[in-house]
Simulated assay, not measured.
Amino acid sequence: MRMTGAWRTPVRHVVLTASAILMAFPFYWLVMSALKTNDEIWQFPPSLWPENPLWGNFAEAWQAAPFAQYLFNSVFVAGMIVVLQFINSAMMGYALTHMKFRLKGAMTAMVLVCYMIPATAVYLPSYMILGKMGLIDSYAGLILTNCVSVFSIFLIRQAFLQVNHELIEAGQMDGASHMRILWTILVPLTRSSFAVLALITFIDQYNNYFWPMLITQSPHLQLVSAGLRSFFVEGGAYGLKWPLIMAASAFTIAPLLVLFALTQKLIIQSVNLTAGSSKG
């Protein structure tokens, strides 16, 4: 039995609303657990709201470990990596799409091949190179080892391929340099793809755990993932202080929620452009 047009829209809204609630529920449960006592967290059946919300758990968790330093490290490192990947991916994507040079096809194939190599396969040689450069246990080591991403190059290359090459030729006929064409024509036309790139890169680097733990030993260089684990082991007493652990987890994901709120319109635009191009 086919669904009539009158019912299709309400049913779609109900399904989307239910999906949104299911996706948001873990965040709600995280915050509510941070406001409970340890006994309330383990009671059965669980309650959706604490009997007496303990807002002081957030302040206690914040003071129990240097989370301000952890958050600064993660935001600073991830932000610098986003800027560098933005620049590198834009220039590389332009070269692979709108420039003519020898071995262009081979270089494109090499990018695709490198995309299939797992990141862990290059940890050892990268660590040895950083050691020889004296960049172990430093901000520079954390940033420079992630300033180029094959995924970012591939993403921007695909975005640049959707731009009409006649616009590039028109710019060249007007005497514009490659850099001017890139930053005044291509980047503005594909800004939604760059917003997606920034969001994905920031989240990936903000949550990065294994590689930063491998090349840093100083506590003041720990990123938020490693800092949260340290708090779980030390301040959280291996899970005996679950309300504080939940509170710490809640305010460590706050920057990601803010970033998503700021970029959601551009992300939706990117999705719409991709859908339109695939239909066309």
Results as ranks from 00 to 15, higher is better:
M3S: 04
W7V: 10
V11Q: 09
H13Y: 13
A20P: 03
M23D: 03
F25W: 15
P26L: 07
V31F: 11
M32D: 05
T37E: 11
D39F: 01
Q43H: 10
F44H: 12
P46D: 01
S47T: 05
W49F: 14
E51S: 14
E51Y: 04
G56Q: 04
N57K: 09
W62N: 11
A64L: 04
P66E: 07
A68Y: 15
Q69W: 07
N73I: 04
M80H: 11
I81S: 13
Q85D: 11
I87K: 08
N88S: 14
M91R: 07
M92G: 15
M92W: 00
M92T: 15
F101V: 02
L103N: 15
G105R: 12
A109Y: 13
A109C: 03
V111C: 11
L112Q: 06
L112I: 11
L112K: 05
V113L: 14
I117N: 00
Y127M: 04
L130A: 03
G131M: 12
G134D: 02
G134K: 13
I136D: 09
V150R: 06
A159N: 07
E166Y: 12
E166I: 13
E169W: 09
A170I: 06
M173D: 15
G175K: 02
R180M: 12
T184K: 15
I185A: 06
V187Y: 07
P188S: 10
A198N: 07
Y206L: 03
Y206K: 02
N207K: 05
P219W: 01
P219R: 02
L223V: 07
A226C: 10
L228W: 11
F231A: 02
G235S: 09
K241C: 00
P243S: 10
A247W: 10
F251C: 02
F251M: 03
P255S: 02
L259T: 03
F260R: 01
F260S: 00
A275I: 06
A275Y: 06
G276M: 05
S277M: 00
S278Q: 08
K279S: 14
G280N: 05
